[in-house]
Write a protein that binds this DNA or RNA. Structure first.
Lengths: 229, 229
DNA sequence: CTCCGAATTTTGTTGCAACAAAAATGGAAT
DNA sequence: ATTCCATTTTTGTTGCAACAAAATTCGGAG
């Protein structure tokens, strides 16, 4: 009667169409397929992804619950635009939650983890110098979540992911140039140092600085955009 | 997550049946209508609440997404039982998130807020001495969320609420005796002191201590229960 | 009494059509 | 041009039935 999840490893859960539609839509949002303000409808999603209306509706409901999509009217959901206040709020939450995940994830990290993270870091720097911002973003996510994932805290991880999704969906049209920079590279290097010294606090501090740097950049971008419009 | 009533800017949203079913079920869970492990089915919820299967399904999906309900098999959702590890994880998240909310909420709190909080505190102590644990729990929630609500951070508030829901649903059968005690009373008093001194850090510290005390109590209860079974 | 497997019942999912409500449209008046 | 209002179109929601798959039951063997 009692059965729990597998301990670790590939989550080979039988996903219904609704879950697949959710993943598909989420991917599109993160990749910036729709600009902020774009209207998302059940039937459009259904046809676009080739599913029926029910899975599409499930996916929309879930994304709305996570605030990756928002209502702009009683029957209209759109890709959200983050206000300055909302960006601040998400950042404060990220600082606490990702600080926690970084600290716990740093504990017991070994050579294999460091090697993996250095690989991500290499990809980031390469992608950055070649102007492949989308790839840099992807590897950046890989870097952060490799650390967070080590913490073995699934609820924490899921919550952090929704925060990334919120920021990603709202800023994708101007994220690349602002999300990562030389500061980001330096912060990641500091995190790696902390890992090598087996100093979770150092890792935590580096990640928090990384988040703060990104926040400044995003805030700047948001101000510029609101002036232009 | 539009709740009963917001302090400010509460644009009354037209709730569909799905939202109402969600609220109803959530209420039942928090109030401990179902013991941990109890199986929840779409059709049972539909009939019990008097809605069709679609709203019931929506409510279940949402609760599962929030982890207030969990899968125990591919097609079976049950009221969750928190493991020791999960309780620890939730507590760590609560410390960071509620610490943040307490700190921000304490800023600019005035006499009206303190009066309201003292009212809650009075209800808690009265309910506690009279053995009305459910009422004490309710007022306790009122106390905490009055502070958190002042922070004007809706996403943060919604996230904290899901954490309370998780703990509440899993521990309702033994929560009362353990959730609140003389320590809780003292912690709340310390928070009030901090509010009077206009010292957000003091409020934050008091709330964090309150969470830690509750954690110890819950952990103890969990150990006792696993021994008995 | 326990364990295992087949038969039976229960259950989630999905597509769909009808409906009410909201959004888009178009045009008239200022 | 702009605003306002009525018309038309679009859209989310809901209930329902069919279906596949899982959970439960039950019986028999060891």
């Amino acid at each position: 009667m009692e059965e729990s999840e597998g301990l670790v490893g590939g989550s080979s859960k039988v996903m219904g169409l609704g879950d697949r539609a959710y993943e598909d839509l989420k991917e599109k949002l993160v990749r910036g397929a729709y600009p902020p303000g774009h209207k998302i409808t059940v039937r459009a999603v259904a046809e676009e992804l080739g599913y029926g209306t029910t899975p599409a509706r499930d996916a929309l409901n879930r994304l709305v619950a996570e605030r990756a999509l928002v209502f702009s009217g009683p029957k209209t959901v759109v890709v959200p635009t983050l206000s300055l206040a909302e960006l601040y709020e998400v950042t404060q939450m990220r600082l606490r939650l990702e600080g926690l995940a970084a600290e716990k994830g740093a504990i017991g990290a070994g050579a294999a983890d460091i090697a993996q993270l250095e690989a991500f870091q290499g990809e980031i720097e390469a992608a950055l110098t070649e102007g492949r911002y989308a790839d840099a973003l992807w590897s950046n996510k890989g870097f952060h979540f490799h650390i967070y994932g080590r913490a073995q805290m699934p609820m924490l991880l899921a919550t952090i992911e929704t925060l990334w999704l919120r920021v990603g969906a709202a800023f994708n049209d101007l994220y690349p140039e602002f999300a990562i920079s030389k500061y980001g590279i330096q912060n990641h290097r500091a995190a790696l140092e902390g890992l090598r010294h087996k100093d979770p606090q150092e890792v935590k501090a580096a990640i928090e600085t990384d988040i703060r740097d990104g926040y400044r950049r995003l805030r700047q971008a948001l101000s510029d955009r609101s002036l232009k419009k």
